[in-house]
Design a protein around this nucleic acid. Sequence first.
DNA 1: GAGTATGATTGACGATTCGTCAACTTGACG
DNA 2: CGTCAAGTTGACGAATCGTCAATCATACTC
Lengths: 266, 266
Amino acid sequence: MVFCKREQRRDDACPIRRFKKNGRVNVAEREAHLLDIAEQVVEQYGFAGLTMDKIVNRCAYSKGTVYNHFSSKEDLITALCIRAMRTEMGYLNRALAFEGSSRERALAGHFAYQLYARLHPTLFMCVLSAKTPAVVEKTSPARMVQMQQLEQDILSLSTSLMQAAIAAGDLTVPAGVSPQQLMFAHWATAFGTSALLSAEASSNLKELDREQASLFNINLLLDGMGWRPLSGEHDYREVWHRIGQTLFKQELERLNSPQHAQENAR
Amino acid sequence: MVFCKREQRRDDACPIRRFKKNGRVNVAEREAHLLDIAEQVVEQYGFAGLTMDKIVNRCAYSKGTVYNHFSSKEDLITALCIRAMRTEMGYLNRALAFEGSSRERALAGHFAYQLYARLHPTLFMCVLSAKTPAVVEKTSPARMVQMQQLEQDILSLSTSLMQAAIAAGDLTVPAGVSPQQLMFAHWATAFGTSALLSAEASSNLKELDREQASLFNINLLLDGMGWRPLSGEHDYREVWHRIGQTLFKQELERLNSPQHAQENAR
DNA sequence: GAGTATGATTGACGATTCGTCAACTTGACG
DNA sequence: CGTCAAGTTGACGAATCGTCAATCATACTC
């Protein structure tokens, strides 16, 4: 209420207009800008304080134009979720570059996922929110399929890691088990772990070593699959650490900097 | 829109009044009744269609009284989440009665969780929603601690299962690993699996054997922990089936009856 | 049994927020 | 310059939220 005077204007409403230049305005670019603003608003006011009016007042466009991009507030949240998943996929792609055994590379994938969840807590919360019925019910069908497509892409990307492991003989799929089944186990573990770590930021996880929880859970899963070398035969904590240092040094520094802690406080 | 005419009244507002009888009205009972109504409304209109006015119109109390119970719509959703967790705990308690090895009993616990998620999809969605920031932010502090307390209770209950396994020598906790860490792995796996199975009802899980997915994921986890007897040494599909037949026969029948399918359609 | 204090209950109401749409603006084209 | 399609606008109606001054039921006092 104290900050951001721009909220108050009502009569001095902004006369700036951005009509199509060079024959056509870049729709995707504008949508990205609107999502930037949405993120800022959430950052500042929380999800409960996210309103379309706040977004309209902060951008150079009118309500009608904003609604031209997003059919409803929930549609916008799903759009944020899609942005989150794109970000996630970016990290995931970088993880693929890690050199090592198949299991180490899988670990790199999970490292990427977990890092993204910690680095962009707001975006990750969008993914959680977008799985909520209240949001799903009001999301436009078009965006819904877009999200499912992207999810599918991420799953394929991860599946390729697993296929490589099978080909290399590090992982054996038991008879009667589909690769989908294995993939789903990965997904469920990664999602469950990150979701709970984010959502239960306070409360019931006080005595948990959050830093290691992801690695621990993933290792249990991979051991359960018999993905060699097993965690008893190899020091995966060292690998986990090395993944961070090799692929995500900058991001980890940002995560540990006091500045980032400040950004995410309150 | 066609159903439930009671929605429309406005002038003929209900004059029924339920003042305290015998000196004191039963607050808890009334709250339960309001939650019943809330569930019905969600069932009928979806989460997006849940409004306080609909609830007020369906009960014998005024808006003010309803708001005396729930400080906001989100507070009510969290209350539904608490109800969901109570239900869950009920199933869990029944699961404890299963006779068998420690791992079989743990499996019974997971069976209970998974069954509850499938049997009460709406309630389970409340749990998902209640982890969402938009809801958390508007939930009353009192109810928040109530939920955390209940969550804690459920965790303790589950931990007792694990402790028994350790005592029996079926499960060995590696050096440097806390029981909390193991418990969290259970929680994350169970939550992740059920949440994705519920939320991705359509879309990206088409080719998955949903029936067996829970058991499969849990078995991977338990094998990873080295919880004996391992799944290679024992037919846990049979056990899974037996758990259902022994402890939850009625519920399973209800789940498979065409009537239930109808209830949950559209 | 009349009077009164207490606390629960009520529903009309102000405030927000959502999403729409008729009117308007712009640039392209003939 | 007139016209047209496409894009933009913001005032507005509708829906919903949450509040609160007035009202009512009960218990208690005298």
